Amino acid sequence: MKAGDVLLLPGWQNSGPQHWQSLWEARHGYRRVEQHDWMRPLRGDWSARLEDAVLASEAPVVLVAHSLGCILAAAWASVSRSTARVRGALLVAPGDVERPDLREQLRGWAPIARQPLPFPSVLVASRNDPYCRLERARELAQAWGSRFVDHGEAGHLNADSGLGDWPRGQALLDELMNLRER
């Protein structure tokens, strides 16, 4: 699998330079799915950009999503005819867009698609994520058919969490990719 076959799906407001997704992009050459508007995300627009990125790939892809990117992956998978081109997904710190405060800020993202994902996935959550309770993340993992990983107390699993280039996350991604290569 080539580095360009790994698609990074940042969340709302994109991933800054010290976020593990940005560090992985720089270090490994993974491809960020660029959105038209990171500040006012529209689910339909974001899904269309993901569809374009998946179809533009010469080989099957692996999705690496953070926060709203996780909700995007589930929404896209629930309607796309291109899901067979996805080998798997690493879903990190999903944002609970059904919570009243986030629903207000991210209009049009609720309800969260809850169909089982048609590809293997791992959902990583933190016990003290300010945007999604651990129990809620576990419910999403169950609905999506994802393997659930409790990352302990690590906030939103972003740059503020002090993860650096997050070797544990890379190991989870490697495991996911190896499952599909057997």
Rank of each mutant, 00 (worst) to 15 (best):
Asn14Cys: 13
Trp166Ala: 00
Pro17Arg: 10
Gln18Lys: 08
Phe119Leu: 10
Arg85His: 14
Ala113Glu: 06
Val33Leu: 00
Arg32Asp: 02
Gly69Asp: 05
Ala113His: 11
Arg27Pro: 04
Ser80Arg: 09
Asn14Val: 09
Gly145Phe: 05
Arg43Leu: 14
Arg136Gly: 00
Arg32Met: 04
Gly155Ile: 15
Ser121Trp: 01
Glu153Ile: 08
Gly16His: 13
Trp166His: 00
Ala59Arg: 08
Val62Gly: 00
Ser82Gln: 09
Ala65Arg: 15
Arg43Met: 13
Leu23Pro: 04
Glu34Tyr: 00
Val122Ser: 06
Val64Lys: 01
Cys70Gly: 14
Pro10Thr: 09
Ser82Gly: 03
Gly69Ala: 07
Arg99Lys: 02
Leu176Ser: 04
Leu172Cys: 02
Asp165Lys: 06
Trp109Lys: 08
Asp129Phe: 03
Pro130Cys: 06
Pro118Val: 03
Trp144Leu: 12
Tyr30Asn: 00
Pro116Ile: 03
Leu8Pro: 03
Leu90Gly: 05
Val61Asn: 08
Pro10Ser: 12
Gly29Thr: 04
Asn158Pro: 15
Ala3Pro: 11
Pro167Thr: 11
Trp144Ser: 12
Val149Glu: 15
Arg31Gly: 01
Ser161Asn: 15
Ala48His: 12
Ser161Gln: 15
Glu175Phe: 03
Phe119Cys: 13
Glu34Lys: 01
Gln105Arg: 08
Arg114Glu: 01
Pro60Ala: 10
Ala75Met: 02
Ala56Val: 01
Trp166Val: 00
Leu123Met: 10
Arg32Cys: 02
Asp160His: 15
Glu175His: 03
Arg49Cys: 09
Pro111Thr: 09
His156Tyr: 07
Arg49Val: 05
Ser161Gly: 13
Glu139Val: 13
His66Leu: 12
Gln21Asn: 07
Arg180Trp: 07
Ser146Thr: 12
Ser121Lys: 00
Gly152Ser: 15
Leu72Arg: 09
Pro116Met: 05
Leu90Val: 11
Ala77His: 10
Arg27Ala: 13
Leu123Arg: 10
Glu181Trp: 02
Met1Ala: 10
